[in-house]
């Protein structure tokens, strides 16, 4: 267990020691800042009865950032260690493969949370400037963040898996982006299919629909189970992939 924390701390620190992290953080905050500006515009027009959080969490910008952010955050996790050979140092230390995989995964999740953390400021600003009689509803805000974390935790697990497949970071990022795109755009079947059963099945994995619900303030257990079990499956697959070196 202590090995896990040692590894986890290094993984998280490694993000802050590389320039990619800061570039992505800036990219993310610029886009989220723009989304917030749009949200403020909606408010300024005095529209009522709109789930506000959809501007932040259910916009085109939210998805384009999530789909590009995740591959960039996860591509180096295993690929870089394999390329530089540090994987040999890591795997000959007395730590289990599972601990390594989990530490890398939770390091990525922690950094994902850290990237989101500054947006809490938006909520505080909203609160500050809204009239006392009509404060922003905290429920949907909390559920939106929860939804972003859930989706992130599954997508990051997919990214980790892709990184463990190759020693080339670019390949890892592209494969991850492709898988995420298939998953995300595949979910659109939920909107376009004419067959009821197909629509219903697609609803189970349609991230767009899930996020829309979360932004509305509705936490359904079905997506919660879907994302957590999805993440667990990808982590399991990653552990097996790392162990596979011992089967040859």
């Amino acid at each position: 267990m202590s090995a896990f924390f040692t590894l986890w701390r290094r993984e998280l620190a490694a993000y802050f020691l590389s320039p990619i992290a800061y570039v992505m953080m800036m990219f993310f905050l610029v886009i989220m800042g723009f989304s917030f500006w749009l949200l403020a515009n909606v408010l300024a027009q005095g529209v009522e009865g709109v789930p506000l959080m959809r501007e932040l969490f259910d916009s085109f910008f939210f998805w384009i950032t999530t789909l590009t952010l995740v591959p960039v955050l996860t591509m180096r996790l295993f690929a870089e260690e394999k390329r530089s050979g540090t994987i040999e140092m890591l795997m000959t230390a007395p730590v289990s493969d599972t601990a390594v995989v989990l530490a890398k995964y939770f390091g990525a999740v922690a950094f994902y949370v850290a990237i989101w953390a500054p947006t809490v400021l938006y909520v505080l600003i909203l609160r500050w400037f809204s009239p006392m009689s009509a404060p922003p509803d905290l429920g949907p805000i909390a559920s939106s963040y929860f939804g972003a974390l859930l989706i992130g935790s599954f997508y990051l697990a997919i990214g980790l898996f892709c990184s463990a497949m190759t020693r080339n970071q670019i390949v890892a990022a592209i494969v991850c982006f492709a898988l995420l795109s298939v998953l995300f755009f595949g979910g659109f079947i939920a909107f376009i299919s004419r067959v009821d059963t197909v629509r219903e099945v697609a609803n189970y994995f349609c991230s767009l629909a899930h996020m829309r619900e979360f932004a509305r303030g509705a936490v359904d257990t079905r997506p919660v189970v879907f994302y957590l079990s999805g993440a667990a499956l990808m982590l399991f697959a990653t552990v097996k992939l790392v162990e596979a070196r011992k089967w040859k």
């Binding site: 202590s2 090995a3 020691l17 530089s84 540090t86 140092m89 230390a93």
Partner: peptide
């Protein structure tokens, strides 16, 4: 192979922690 972005002290103390 070493992690290039770490300081020598950091690296050694990380490895020491990892090795118990």
């Amino acid at each position: 192979p070493l992690y290039p972005e770490m300081r020598v002290d950091e690296y050694l103390s990380y490895r020491a922690a990892l090795k118990g």
